[in-house]
């Protein structure tokens, strides 16, 4: 009983120590008749020995307008670009579980039909190869380790990606 408790506590600490921020696996921008369909796939890796229960994840992404020479994370510049806040909120009994030593991928998608917003995406697109550069920031992940009643919050570093 003592050994099991100690081992679980060590595994718990190890899981928290090694749990990496989620990674953006793919970001796909597809034209549709009304505008754009955007799909973002996030992967949550769990190298620990205990499963993780994700209860919420929120992030904001911007489509970088590269014709503007300011830094991609410049606040004033971000204010002029196409942006969306995406998230999910569940509880510690229904949230998705990342198995011990495994991964879990989750998709977020947006159908952008507003002509103004769709225009912002189109104009931000690289004219040579059609790629889009996105900025992801303000990512906050809330999770539990196994069934241990302690809520944890992880903040994601900002991300700049070409899709």
């Amino acid at each position: 009983m003592y050994a099991a408790s100690s081992a679980k506590f060590v595994d718990y600490s190890d899981a928290l120590l090694r749990f990496p921020p989620p990674r953006l696996e793919t970001a796909t921008f597809t034209r549709n008749p009304g505008g754009w369909n955007i799909t973002l796939r996030w992967t949550f890796d769990n190298p620990g020995r205990l499963p993780m229960r994700l209860v919420s994840f929120q992030f904001e992404f911007w489509v970088d307008n590269r014709s503007d020479s300011r830094e991609p994370l410049d606040g004033a510049k971000l204010g002029t670009e196409y942006t969306r806040i995406l998230s999910f909120y569940l509880d510690r009994y229904t949230g998705p579980v990342v198995p011990a030593g495994g991964s879990k991928s989750l998709d977020w998608w947006v159908d952008e039909t507003d002509p103004g917003n769709a225009g912002k995406i189109t104009s931000a697109m690289d004219p040579t190869d059609g790629s889009v550069y996105i900025v992801v920031a303000d990512g906050v992940l809330v999770f539990y380790v196994a069934e241990i009643n302690e809520r944890h919050q992880g903040f994601m570093p900002p991300l700049y990606r070409r899709t």
Binding site: M1, Y2, A4, S5, S6, K8, F9, Y12, E147, I148, N149, E150
Partner: peptide, 19 residues
């Protein structure tokens, strides 16, 4: 000592105990 410690840990750190 081991028995007492096992119950103590299971009671005070209940989330980590097997029972």
């Amino acid at each position: 000592g081991v028995i007492v410690a096992a119950f103590f840990v299971s009671a005070f750190f209940a989330d980590f105990g097997p029972i």
